[in-house]
Amino acid sequence: MNDGMNHKAGEVTTLTARDLRKSYDDFQAVRGVDFEVYRGECFGFLGPNGAGKTTTMKMIYGAAIPTSGELEVTGLDVKRHERAVKRRIGVVPQENNLDEDLKVRENLLVYGRYFDLPKKIVAQRAEELLEFVQLSEKAEAKVEQLSGGMKRRLLVARALINDPDLVVLDEPTTGLDPQARHLVWDKLRELTSEGKTLILTTHYMDEAAQLCDRLCIMEGGGIISEGAPRDLISEHVSAEVLELRATPETLEKLASIVEDVADNTDRVGDALLVYASDADAVMEKIREWSVEVDNILRRRATLEDVFLKLTGRRLVD
């Protein structure tokens, strides 16, 4: 039935997973996930460490073989068409694995050769990509001379050398400083605006909110929720959040005061988070009782609230 053109809402799927599973000995890293990624969108995998995100990525680019289930990239089964699938994707790995024995430009040239691309085309693309990731002036530098952010940008350029249909990014900005992160985000946004399909894993909620058209939240090897960032927020948490800071006793008192006007409350460290569709009512209630609150922060609910609600606040590893 499948020719890679699964139409859903008139969109073309680049990636389809059905009941995808991966086990290592007696450990189930991925326990039956289903998802579809449409051409031209950025799809995110969120989740705490050990949720199965990286394993899922590895199955897409052939570094892990699915134990069962289906996984198709541009209509090609990853098990049966290993090389053909890898020909169509670009990979930005979690850990830098640039070729340190080669210079910056050479990294792109040699990598392009692995795809059997004509020398001329690779050379031309290498220049364009260095320009794109703002590394042209570093073309002749050694890889070890690059900063962390530059290395990550070079990894992005390398992943694009074969003009892939799908770019897989595993935690593309982990460990980067804010400036470097924003530069990588800008580049990734440019890619999606050019119509490239991206999938990325992250545990930065702001990254997911900034980049992803749709995302899923993974935990314990399964997908526990999926949708557009806005929809996930409205589905799982109230529109507004009040962060109240005060002494522990006062916070306890506050929790019971606001109980009937809040949708729910959550104690996090020295703060009480009050989720409310009507934050004014909560504020009014606090004023009525004239409780001493050190600090009140009123903000819109974010993806982080969704994430913490769904995956809990305990430390995973």
Partner: peptide, 14 residues
Amino acid sequence: IDRIYDAITTTPVN
């Protein structure tokens, strides 16, 4: 250490 093979094997080179 350098994980060169990890990088190569994400391409059509197995």
